[in-house]
């Protein structure tokens, strides 16, 4: 194993461990912090695939902005581990079944992909670099890109309207 593959497996182990810790933590604030660690490790994987832009945007948007909002809400609601109401057992069962189904689908889909053997891709491939990404987004996919920005705009307008009520 090369150095990069050692890093790959290390990141993978940390990602799975912190994802599990996120689910099993009693305290919601700890869960959020574990989730942030998951985002970091996944960003590390992007970096190993030479997708630098995706790496940093994942950190800025998910770990930096969305998780801060999560933390905000949880801190303000001041949820305590003990005062949380007991959940319905049927809900737990439904959660296990739907989660398990999703995992089955994902494993089936990823089992035969071509990239399975290629764990890391250092210093090769332009696809994740910002120049290439910009060219693709604003030349080949400019219409879907603009439509999705309209979607964001409508979401923002909706938030303002709800806020004004």
């Amino acid at each position: 194993m090369g150095t990069t593959e050692v890093i790959f497996w290390f990141l993978t182990a940390v990602a799975v461990f912190s994802a599990l810790m996120m689910v099993f933590s009693k305290n919601p604030v700890h869960s959020v912090l574990w989730l942030i660690l998951v985002f970091f490790t996944i960003s590390g994987h992007y970096l190993l695939m030479n997708a630098q832009f995706l790496f940093i945007v994942n950190l800025i948007v998910y770990a930096g902005a969305i998780m801060v909002l999560f933390l905000f809400v949880i801190m303000l609601m001041n949820m305590e581990g003990d005062s949380e109401p007991r959940k319905n057992q049927w809900m737990t069962l439904a959660g296990i079944i739907s989660g398990g189904t999703l995992m089955l689908v994902l494993v089936a889909a990823l089992k035969d992909t071509g990239t399975q053997r290629q764990l890391v891709q250092m210093k090769e491939g332009q696809i994740g670099l910002i120049h290439h990404l910009g060219m693709v987004l604003f030349k080949d996919y400019v219409v879907p890109f603009e439509i999705s920005s309209v979607l964001f705009l409508s979401a923002m307008v909706g938030a303002v309207i709800i806020g004004k009520k």
């Binding site: 630098q52 940093i56 950190l59 800025i60 770990a63 930096g64 801060v68 933390l71 801190m75 910002i130």
Partner: peptide, 25 residues
């Protein structure tokens, strides 16, 4: 000398919130 230098700075700055938030909470 990474080709996303400025974005890296933004990323680190947005992480800087956690020091304050975690400490305060």
């Amino acid at each position: 000398d990474i080709n996303i230098g400025i974005l890296f700075i933004f990323g680190v700055v947005s992480m800087g919130v956690y020091g304050i938030m975690i400490g305060g909470w």
